[in-house]
């Protein structure tokens, strides 16, 4: 089967202009291939660059060299050179991202936050809200919270809103940065179920899981991100 994601020769430095221009090299010649239906766990010590690699793929970080080829609407596109419009379209239709923390929008209720990706794809409002409610219920978020903005929610409640938002739209490629970090065992099990279902429908998943129990339950293989000093 042809891959969903091919990363080749990826390099990423951070130049800190406010600290006298010090350059932090983080990724060199990073490579990764992801196929439909598989889940790959990024591993490696803290600070090795796991989140950086994931954010480059998500488009939050720009890359300095290399390619991030992603299958979108049946063709491969290079995210490194994609413009803002293409990136937006890819995020709307192809690339789902559960970041480590939910970025809350003031005054927007949890239900709308979760339904937003469906609305952006043209799903009718009632339909989108009903599916959002069902998913939040599955993640054990009490119905009385659905109509409230998540700003005042607990860490675990916010994370469940974030997960629901990431999983609602059935994206072919999902990026998960510590999706179970602040969850209790019951909700961790729900997330494992969601990941398995996504894989079963053919989604490719790239995850960072500090929770080895979750990792072993969902990952088909590991991809080690080595700190640069060790790699050299």
């Amino acid at each position: 089967m042809s891959p969903v994601l091919v990363v080749e020769g990826l390099a990423k430095d951070f130049t800190l202009h406010l600290q006298g221009g010090v350059v932090l090299p983080v990724l060199r010649d990073a490579a990764l291939v992801l196929h439909p239906g598989e889940c790959v766990a990024l591993t490696g010590p803290s600070g090795a660059g796991k989140s950086t690699l994931m954010r480059c793929i998500a488009g939050n970080y720009g890359a300095d060299a290399g390619r991030i080829m992603l299958r979108h609407r049946g063709a491969m596109h290079d995210l490194v050179s994609a413009d803002a419009r293409l990136l937006r379209e890819i995020r709307r239709e192809t690339l789902g991202h559960v970041s480590q923390f939910l970025r809350v929008i003031p005054r927007v209720p949890a239900l709308e936050v979760v339904a937003a990706p469906l609305r952006a794809r043209g799903v009718a409002r009632e339909d989108a809200l009903a599916r959002a409610a069902a998913l939040l219920e599955r993640l054990n978020l009490p119905a009385r919270l659905h109509g409230l903005p998540p700003a005042t929610f607990s860490g675990g409640e916010q994370q469940r809103v974030n997960i629901a938002r990431g999983f609602i739209a059935d994206c072919p490629l999902m990026l998960l940065d510590e999706p179970t970090a602040s969850l209790d065992p019951a909700n961790r099990a729900v997330v494992i179920g969601l990941i398995r279902e996504a894989k079963a429908r053919g989604a490719a998943i790239l995850g960072i899981f500090h929770d080895t129990e979750v990792r072993d339950a969902v990952a088909d293989r590991r991809h080690e991100v080595a700190p640069l000093e060790d790699a050299a």
């Binding site: 406010l18 939050n60 720009g62 803002a84 937006r88």
Partner: peptide, 21 residues
């Protein structure tokens, strides 16, 4: 210039870094 989250999360120009910081 660029996608909003990239300009704010990974600013390149010294002035943008100052602005975000």
């Amino acid at each position: 210039e660029g996608p909003a989250d990239r300009v704010l999360d990974d600013p390149q120009h010294p002035y943008t870094q100052l602005l975000v910081a």
